[in-house]
């Protein structure tokens, strides 16, 4: 009789640990607002990056004049219609996204590092460091960014760079307050005290122990902020303080199109709609991230 080989009990494989990234992605993908927001944001960024290749009339970005095609309503040829000198509004809206996103990128690129560092310092050290930083923050917080940008434009000149710097000069305050409040809570946590007793440097404690615990709140805040910055930027260019014509800008287009309301409504409504959608996309994404990370600190 053939010896029956007893199958050894199969060693149970250790339960495969789902990677954090995968778990997060799974939860993210079940959250409709987050997915819609992310889709809008990604589409907007791609469209802005690929604008010269995906738009039907890339030459309409410049000072092109085509009076035979002026004030045409939306059609298969001109999806968003044409403006008062006959340029394709769809093309100009896609190119206009570039300015809006650039503005958000530059403002947040300045505001986040500055605001975060100040917030960490104020929250961790307390005492006079906290008093100086937080009172400065309160002062800056009292000035509306739009007013600041108007003032800067009046003193210097109305252009995009000045407006960006004016907004960035005030925007860090929100990040300072956010990171400050989180740091205050984390400062007394045992892992921070443990790092202190283990001889870690202040730099290590601030940027390696505390900052990683702020990242989810920062991600939420950044996404929500990007929407606001785009709105503020659009208001600025609506008032003529943004990038100067003929470079397409959504706010400028709304302003110039408003002269032809209500007959040629598409000239201002559709660029306005584009602003709305992009700002909404960032907000939905921020809300989704907030649910995902369960962050309470960001309003």
């Amino acid at each position: 009789m053939a010896q029956e080989s007893h199958p050894k009990t199969v060693p149970t494989a250790p339960p495969r640990r789902l990677s954090n990234a995968y778990q997060n992605w799974y939860r993210f993908s079940r959250n409709p607002t987050a997915v819609i927001g992310a889709a809008i944001v990604i589409l907007a960024i791609l469209a802005a990056l690929l604008a010269p290749w995906i738009t039907p009339y890339p030459e309409h970005v410049g000072a092109v004049v085509n009076f035979r095609a002026r004030h045409l309503p939306p059609s298969a040829e001109y999806w968003f219609g044409t403006d008062n000198v006959g340029r394709d509004i769809f093309t100009r809206v896609i190119f206009g996204l570039r300015i809006s996103l650039l503005l958000a990128l530059v403002v947040l690129g300045i505001a986040i590092p500055v605001g975060t560092t100040l917030g960490l310092l104020a929250g961790y050290f307390g005492g006079w460091v906290e008093v100086v930083i937080m009172r400065l923050t309160d002062i800056a917080l009292a000035i509306p960014p739009l007013v600041m940008a108007l003032a800067v434009a009046a003193v210097l000149s109305p252009d995009l760079i000045n407006s960006m710097l004016a907004i960035a000069a005030l925007w860090w305050t929100w990040h300072t307050r956010l990171i400050y409040s989180i740091t205050r809570q984390l400062r007394t946590q045992e892992f921070v005290e443990a790092a202190e007793t283990l001889g870690a440097s202040k730099f290590h404690i601030l940027f390696r122990e505390i900052l990683p615990n702020c990242v989810s709140a920062l991600a939420v805040k950044t996404s929500l902020d990007a929407g606001f910055v785009i709105l503020v930027g659009a208001s600025l260019s609506f008032l003529g303080l943004g990038i100067q014509p003929p470079t397409p800008d959504l706010g400028t287009m709304v302003a110039s199109g408003s002269a032809f309301l209500p007959d040629y409504w598409w000239e201002s409504v559709l660029p306005g709609f584009a602003i709305l959608i992009v700002a909404l996309g960032f907000n939905l994404l921020g809300d989704g991230l907030r649910d995902l990370f369960d962050v309470q600190e960001v309003r």
């Binding site: 946590q189 045992e190 892992f191 005290e193 443990a194 790092a195 007793t197 283990l198 001889g199 870690a200 440097s201 290590h204 390696r208 122990e209 990683p212 615990n213 990242v215």
Partner: peptide, 29 residues
């Protein structure tokens, strides 16, 4: 002199791996 804290859930940084946490005193010293 070193200390082991009461609650290991809060004395280890949730955002750092075990290796990174143990490396803190190594790097500092």
């Amino acid at each position: 002199v070193q200390m082991v804290f009461q609650n290991p859930g809060s004395s280890l940084n949730p955002r750092r791996t075990v290796g990174q946490s143990i490396a803190v005193p190594l790097a500092a010293h």
